[in-house]
Design a protein around this nucleic acid. Structure first.
Lengths: 352, 352
DNA sequence: CAAAACAACATTATCGTTATCTTATAATTC
DNA sequence: GAATTATAAGATAACGATAATGTTGTTTTG
């Protein structure tokens, strides 16, 4: 094992050709199983290639083929379980199709996103899957200009005119809100982040619709508890829980006693549980809690948290398939917009 | 915005040259700020390049330069917070150095690992950071043979003779075990996975040393609770908690009542908490619990879990720096092996 | 058995850059 | 103002693979 020679120059087709006594072209045909080579020579060549540890130079290959068998993924942060699931599934699908994945992180910053896009373009990708951070779409036009297939996930940019796949936030919030209302809640508070994202706007809207459909009025001052935006996205997710704790504690200490909380992130529920526990408010007897995201720890909360199962893997699967179709020129021209409806996971926190 | 032309062929240096009325060569020099071009023509060329949306073809470029400004990362699963932190930090460091990151997942399977290595080689990477899944190192020899710099993290393969960075599992387990012993525990159980990994072996050894240093005897039958290996690594981390729950419940129902648990993963603590709660065994009064990993939810467990803060970001930072040094030919010849000592986070679950 | 068909390989061109070597022109020096 | 030296640009050749033709022989066929 020790005699492995380090740093030696990789053998090329030419080298192989010289050793076997044939032309580079023939070697290429033999290794790529194209016709024009006798079975015996082909076997000989393959054996020799194996022996010398020949690996085709991807740069030369993709220069002539115009493709690289690589797709890029731009998300803000893989510490976020939603995005890590998404990226994992993209990687798996890409792998099945013989593609590799270039990972670019934008950390929820417009500047870093711009940089990520720039690096993506310079990397010569075959396609790109991205969860944009900004509402403005101008950053993405270079991608389209360069003719690189682009599929968006999670956050939509309608004016860009590209395919979009997402979980259905509107349906989701109505599912969770309806669930607590159906179980007798009359005074529900939505605990969510105060950010100017379309996803969050949609959530507030859906929440309101759900209340109104049940004959309840929606008053932002009473039915909304907003968490100030996170300072940095490099820090652990658990700060979300801290922030939620603070907002919930404040609300409860002002004497407000809703009979149900619906939250926009399971981590918020984590902080909320603490605030409630400290004040001896029992879940679900005094107040129901409904989560969002079905994070791994929710089943083990006390009581186990009812939550929403977001089909991020399915989103990733469809987005990747669509992207690969585009790359292989098999995609139709229409712009696909799919929102996949999540599923409820009802557990003890909403069961009276 | 709508008139953005889709799928048009990217302009090349030749195209630019024709437009400006110069040679491709001159354009190249102008854009790369190499001497031999007058200031005015350079400005003209850059303006024109910007206007046409010229992006250099990375394939052609790296074919000539022999590098791609890309490093690969092979880990088993980014759903695991340790690995997602690691990958995030590698991406950040790489980005600072002008490199992009190719992500390859091995899903804790030897076969997929082999495939990932193969794809890494075919991708023409400048370097590779990997957390190997197997103890056997033969899968990695092609990487070394190809002269591609390799840095290992998390799991060591000494016979491979490459740099290695990791958290110090041995010091870690002694820190956690010592912590409960120092707080009066006399009968400690280590709850860990039953896998033939060097990391886990090291943990068991360290646990034993810690007990013996405190004048206690170590008996595998009494001091060890082993969780059967996970079936699949695509499933959520929370199954770890389920498995731990089952093992802990079984142990407790056999009448065993240790006064402290030390676990090899915070998720195990999650399952353990439930098993204890169901049996009205109080934490920390009846039994102390010490976690491993400082996952985001541990601060919000009831009671908050004492745990071990693993410096995965620091590991990633050092590993990436070292890899970049290798790539840029600035690394010395010696084989670096660094184990970074974790820190304790003492919370209520071990405070009597 | 000659003409056509085919298999097995060689030749040459090409992808889009960068590197090296020239050459023409302008600026400097004595 | 002639000789020297900078400066700006062109010409040509890589890089390592694949694609499109060419060139041999050998086999088939009427």
């Amino acid at each position: 094992m020790a005699e492995v020679s380090r740093g030696r120059r990789q053998p090329t087709l030419q080298d192989l050709a010289k050793v076997v006594g044939l032309t580079a072209n023939t070697i290429s045909r033999a290794l790529n199983d194209r016709p024009g080579v006798s079975a015996t020579t082909r076997a000989l060549i393959k054996a020799e290639a194996e022996r010398l540890g020949y690996v085709p130079n991807i740069h030369a290959r993709s220069l002539v083929l115009g493709a690289r068998k690589t797709i890029g993924v731009i998300v803000s942060n893989i510490s976020n379980p939603f995005f890590s699931d998404l990226v994992s599934e993209v990687e798996l699908q890409a792998q099945h199709a013989g593609y590799t994945v270039l990972l670019l992180l934008s950390y929820e910053s417009a500047e870093r996103e711009r940089d990520a896009i720039d690096r993506a373009l310079r990397s010569g990708l075959d396609g790109l899957i991205a969860a944009p951070v900004q509402e403005r779409s101008t950053a993405w036009t270079p991608v389209i200009k360069a003719g690189i297939p682009l599929v968006l996930v999670s956050r939509e940019l309608p004016e860009l005119g590209v395919d979009f796949y997402s979980t259905d936030n509107d349906a989701g919030i109505q599912l969770t809100t309806d669930a607590v209302l159906a179980r007798g809640a009359k005074d529900v508070v939505l605990l969510d982040e105060d950010m100017p994202f379309s996803t969050i706007r949609l959530r507030t809207e859906g929440f309101r619709h759900s209340l109104e459909r049940h004959g309840l009025t929606f008053d932002p001052r009473y039915n909304l508890a907003l968490i100030p935006p996170a300072r940095s996205f490099r820090v652990s997710q658990s700060w979300h829980a801290d922030d939620a704790y603070r907002v919930a504690a404040d609300l409860l200490d002002r004497g407000r006693r809703p009979d149900a909380f619906v939250v926009g992130d399971d981590y918020y529920a984590l902080g909320l549980y603490r605030a409630l526990r400290e004040r001896n408010i029992r879940i679900p007897d005094d107040v129901m809690v409904m989560g969002w995201g079905n994070l791994p720890f929710t089943r083990f909360m006390e009581p186990p948290l009812s939550t929403l199962l977001l089909p991020f893997e399915e989103v990733a699967r469809r987005a990747t398939r669509r992207l690969l179709d585009h790359i292989q020129g098999m995609a139709d021209d229409r712009i696909v917009t799919e929102r996949i409806v999540p599923e409820l996971a009802i557990r003890a926190s909403t069961t009276r």
